[in-house]
Design a protein around this nucleic acid. Structure first.
Lengths: 213, 213
DNA sequence: CGCGGTGTTGAGACCTGTCAAGACGTGTGG
DNA sequence: CCACACGTCTTGACAGGTCTCAACACCGCG
């Protein structure tokens, strides 16, 4: 039995630089890793959905280079590093799995960097919706071709390196092309292959194929 | 004794998707991880300097989501995964160190994403020069306040998500402010604190403090 | 000497940010 | 039940940053 914790939206639950003694397994809700700019704007470097370890990398790094913030009401299991220590010592395959998971995080970072580095803004947005669809589907949080999506356009802007005004216009572009429907905190993707094509989305970087480790 | 390999510049030495049976330890020269855009442009997601494992993450992922390319003449040690397998089995601390190293890579990706997400172009450039200075200093490849830097402006552009024309102008801006001198494939940083200040560079994300693992 | 790659410069188009205002929806308190 | 406040979404006009295209300078090398 392990400790769980609840948190309302818009809380900073792990602070950059602070020493870590446990990692967070997200059970319900949405988290983000974020770095703050001097300008006051904030860059989100990854989104987390239920099933994700939000700061497993903290197990080896022992402090984070970013904050972790809640984007919705969240339920989070707290896993002491001491416990992870015992787990990986007793089960080498588990160690390998955890290592693998942090490497997938890195792959997601690379993909985001790729997007930020020069994809057209609508494609960037489309790519994010594709990624989230696939990741949510894995954990059974899609319903048909739609999923709950609590982020505001402002928060989307923090992920995509653009302003909320521009997110709004890019979203309209995707809507006009019938690639995306967003309403009341829900995303619907009428034609995933078409959206993936527009976004140049290839899920290979998520390494979802049957894992043999 | 392990196998080493030499390669001239501009070679793609690991191809996206290809199954991996070894990892590459860079002994001399510069490597980059790169993803190609449909447009033909290419995004570099990380630079590697001597001492870096360029694809240690491939040890758990077993294939890469990007290419690895040489940016200069390179000497590379080839480490079979089989050998890593034995090493980590026999030396759990080594396993932890390797895991740590891949997590630092992820931290570098985050920082690049942060830059790409909205730093002004001159600051992005300055930040990269700071990062490389610190990383090269660790492995003894700086001389005073300067270091060899073989990348063309075109290649810098691929790192920073901008065009080479814009890199050129941003570089001039840094030169005019006396923050950077670049000539004949050499970078000189007359005043590192000033450059770091302009770049908002904080080396914490490189996790260089004495490692206790 | 000429060639190819790299660096530099200019002009114009385009994308994205900024600022500001208003629409809409929802929850709260009177 | 209404009035209101607040957050979010939407829109318009404009400024500014960045890209594109093109030309030229420079340099090392065959």
């Amino acid at each position: 039995m392990q400790e769980t914790r609840r948190s309302p939206p818009d809380q900073e639950i792990v602070h950059e630089g602070e020493p870590l003694e446990h990692s967070l397994l997200l059970l319900h809700g949405w988290l983000a890793r974020a770095k703050d700019r001097r300008s006051g704007r904030r860059q989100i470097t990854e989104l987390h959905v239920p099933g994700d370890f939000a700061d497993l990398h903290g197990f080896t790094l022992k402090r984070l280079d970013h904050n972790i913030i809640t984007l919705s009401d969240c339920v989070i299991a707290i896993v002491p590093h001491e416990r992870l220590e015992r787990l990986v010592a007793d089960h080498p395959r588990l160690a390998r799995l955890y290592w693998f998971l942090t490497n997938v995080d890195a792959a997601i970072h690379r993909q985001w960097g790729f997007s930020l580095g020069g994809s057209p803004s609508a494609a960037r947005l489309a790519h994010l919706f594709c990624e989230l669809f696939v990741r949510l589907e894995v954990v059974g949080l899609t319903r048909g071709n739609s999923y709950d999506f609590p982020l505001t356009q402002e928060e989307l802007a923090m992920c995509l390196g653009m302003t909320s005004v521009h997110v709004n216009r890019s979203l309209q572009e995707l809507r006009r092309s019938r690639l995306i429907e967003v309403e009341s905190r829900q995303v619907r993707i009428p034609d995933l292959p078409a959206l993936a094509q527009a976004a140049q989305f290839d899920p290979a970087y998520l390494y979802l194929d049957p894992i043999d480790i």
